[in-house]
Design a protein around this nucleic acid. Structure first.
Lengths: 219, 219
DNA sequence: AATACATTCAATAAAAAGCTGGAATGATAA
DNA sequence: TTATCATTCCAGCTTTTTATTGAATGTATT
């Protein structure tokens, strides 16, 4: 009996693992870690068909990694628990640490990677206390609204040419976005430095910020 | 180009996920998180055939989650990095937090679960400073040797009737083993309290101890 | 050099997961 | 009520994963 129960337990653990065994599902988890989204939004962002997106979401839902709630005509999905985001960050960390093949792809994906100057979470935290830097959230506004670093200004990449004037001069700008697997902050940095601002990039997301025990702001 | 690279990145992440998508592989990761093992040992412990065990190990190895090295006639596998153990702990945590189905199985598997008194890592740490408790490592000796809580005595369940006399009287005994998915500490607790010792159980493993930032001992 | 032994490889069959396009559902809005 | 629309379900098909055999590999020991 004991062995069977043990196997059953590991079957449940494997069930969670299976949910994480697909690239598209991981991309959805990554997106949902930023902000809740409808099926339609997710399908567009992950470049998948509706049916396919829905099916993947069902898998994540059955594994209890996401939950959903109706909102008007559509259904909005979100991560079921912050711990799921932590799990996803860990998986990504292991992949980056262990799979050497990732580096060259990362370099291609984030072509400007080596042209940028980076800052750590700690440096940003200190710089903010001393009001030496301005934090720029380069993600879409919904994601900013769902949770952003304290004091950050929302300035989605697409909106930079329009709303650049909002930025105060004389301070160093630090951009951030969804983290390593996102080029928004890269693009924003390139743009802003072309306009003459001194820019650095934070290579972390809101989840990693929280993992450091630091708080966030909403709305 | 950009989108393709992004997809490639997520394919790599999914590759790590796939390695975690099988119950037997997770059991092996759990075992290897305690101590390095040969294929033969793992096969016996997980109750799998040789070939099957080897095949699963290849999958884990290709995902770079484990590494191996020859040792005499046999090959000894171990976790490739402590971060892998962290990932595994997180996966287990998510499963336990989110899958309600797990509780009843856990109750059956660890039948004495509700007869035991539990202590937290913090309580153990404090109790040890004040020399009020004796820590008993109920795992096999190899696992104790590979890393154990500081000051713990190695007393594998099977050896309790023989070596019980080594235990000092007058102090509270705290048992621990591989964590939640292991009954060694349960069995040890039941045995020792039947012999009249005051016993509590720590529901955590060496990995979780380390995650609290506390050190361990080896050898 | 020959043998023993732990591990891996290869081939197969069975089971599970993945994608697609169209139909069904079910809540909202008219 | 009816129409609309986002989402889910379904049937079919292809691909991937898994367990099981038995043979092959490659060290270590004699």
């Amino acid at each position: 009996m004991s062995r069977q129960d043990k196997e059953q337990l590991f079957r449940y653990f494997g069930f969670i693992g299976s949910a994480l065994a697909n690239p598209h599902r991981l991309e959805m988890v990554d997106l949902l870690a930023q902000a809740p989204r409808t099926v339609e939004e997710l399908a567009k962002m992950a470049e998948l068909s509706f049916a396919n997106t829905s099916q993947h979401l069902q898998v994540l839902k059955r594994a209890r990694l996401v939950s959903c709630q109706r909102e008007g005509k559509s259904i909005r999905y979100s991560l079921a628990d912050p711990l799921v985001a932590v799990l996803w960050v860990d998986l990504r960390r292991v992949a980056q640490l262990r799979l050497d093949e990732i580096e060259p792809v990362m370099d291609r994906y984030r072509a400007h990677r080596h042209d940028l100057e980076y800052v750590s979470i700690q440096e940003v935290w200190q710089g903010m206390q001393q009001e030496e830097i301005v934090l720029v959230d380069a993600r879409p506004e919904e994601e900013y609204a769902a949770g952003h670093l304290p004091g950050a200004i929302s300035l989605p990449v697409d909106a930079i040419p329009m709303r650049m004037r909002d930025l105060p001069m004389g301070k160093t700008i630090v951009t951030y976005c969804r983290g390593l697997v996102c080029v928004d902050a890269d693009d924003a940095s390139i743009l802003l430095s072309a306009y003459g601002y001194p820019v650095k990039r934070l290579e972390a997301s809101v989840v990693e910020w929280q993992l450091e025990g630091l708080g966030i702001e909403k709305g």
